[in-house]
């Protein structure tokens, strides 16, 4: 069964100017989020995750590419009020202490997002109460100020705020990273429940692999402004095809494993102002080969719905080899082949 694709990001890139130099923070990213699906986006700090998130919702200017929501383009946020269609694309921020206005009552802040068609103070405050209940809070708290809540509660309020706009897709940028471990799980589960029950899509961005594994249906791994691997979460976890993904997985501490230091990646993330020649990961890759310094790999299928951008993927990985020879000339694939439908 094919579920509806709600968010389509195609070849999105974001530039910014630093010291009079053009830096490409996001260099051509494709992403799909379907109804009722959680897509996890992981990567080290500085790889462009947050920039991507802000560009997708339109808070940052896009240098290229398109963002389509419910089949229609979602524009960048301008000076005037955001068009109603675009409001169905919402974002939850990392810091629950910074994402609510300290001087306004939370009920009023939640009501900001309610559709204008919902008129009358009684109806609107009833809806605010419903939203508070939906995120697990008492509707009575609408009259309080943000400083009266804990971090987890504030993040629930931030979620209620986005829900008021009846979003079809929510982008959550490190939405649980600033919370306590126990609260993290609760808020992550809340998001998952809401996605499933409301049929929304969720792009869940985090550097915390264990949370992503817990809630994401599909996962995309980002490195230096590009997606280097994507696929169903379990498959990517069990059979990572890109050496960067393998290194990230190895860095996750696990119970029951001998006290063995994870195989550390050598060096720092390169400066996106001057990415390495050839494969962007070639400077840190443990499996680097001669062609890697020449050819820039594109995302190619390595399994069912599983893509990896590595010249050696499939040839040396543990995953199913699709029989292709180790191609040094990147092939272009038909669009529907690049994003195979997920079986659900």
């Amino acid at each position: 069964m094919t579920t509806q694709t709600l968010l389509e990001v195609r070849d999105l890139s974001v530039d910014y100017v630093r010291d009079r130099q053009l830096v490409t923070a996001v260099a051509g990213v494709d992403l799909d989020v379907r109804a009722g699906e959680v897509v996890g986006l992981v990567g080290e700090s500085g790889c462009g995750k947050s920039t991507l998130a802000r560009a997708v919702v339109g808070l940052l200017p896009r240098a290229g590419g398109t963002v389509t929501l419910d089949g229609r383009p979602a524009r960048e946020v301008g000076r005037s009020a955001r068009p109603v269609h675009d409001r169905r694309l919402q974002m939850i921020f990392q810091d629950p202490y910074a994402s609510l206005n300290p001087r306004r009552r939370v009920g009023r802040q939640i009501a900001d997002g309610l559709p204008h068609s919902l008129t009358g103070p009684a109806a609107r405050s009833a809806r605010v109460g419903d939203l508070l209940v939906a995120v697990g809070l008492d509707p009575e708290v609408a009259g309080r100020y943000p400083h009266e809540f804990s971090g987890g509660q504030r993040q629930r309020i931030a979620i209620a705020r986005t829900l008021a706009a009846e979003p079809s897709v929510i982008v959550a940028d490190e939405a649980v990273s600033a919370l306590d471990a126990s609260t993290q799980a609760q808020v992550a589960d809340l998001l998952l429940d809401l996605v499933r029950s409301l049929g929304m899509g969720l792009l869940f961005i985090s550097h915390d692999l264990s949370v992503v594994r817990r809630i994401a249906d599909r996962v995309a791994v980002m490195y230096l402004g590009r997606i280097v691997e994507s696929g169903p979460t379990a498959q990517v976890w069990d059979r990572p095809q890109h050496p960067y993904t393998s290194a990230l997985m190895a860095a996750v501490p696990r119970l029951g494993r001998d006290a063995e230091l994870p195989r550390a990646l050598t060096g720092e993330v390169p400066d996106p102002a001057s990415p390495p020649e050839g494969c962007r990961f070639s400077t840190r890759c443990p499996r680097v080969a001669a062609p890697c310094h020449v050819d820039d790999p594109v995302l190619l299928p390595v399994g069912t719905g599983h893509l990896a951008a590595c010249l050696l993927a499939g040839a040396t990985g543990a995953g199913p080899d699709d029989g292709r020879p180790l191609s040094l000339t990147p092939r272009t694939l038909p669009a529907d082949d690049r994003h195979p439908t997920r079986k659900s």
Binding site: V77, A81, R82, S99, N101, T162
Partner: peptide, 16 residues
């Protein structure tokens, strides 16, 4: 700040 960004996303105009 993030609270301004989130308000803008909810459809609050720049001047408001």
């Amino acid at each position: 700040s993030e609270f301004v960004a989130s308000s803008r996303l909810l459809g609050i105009s720049s001047i408001r």
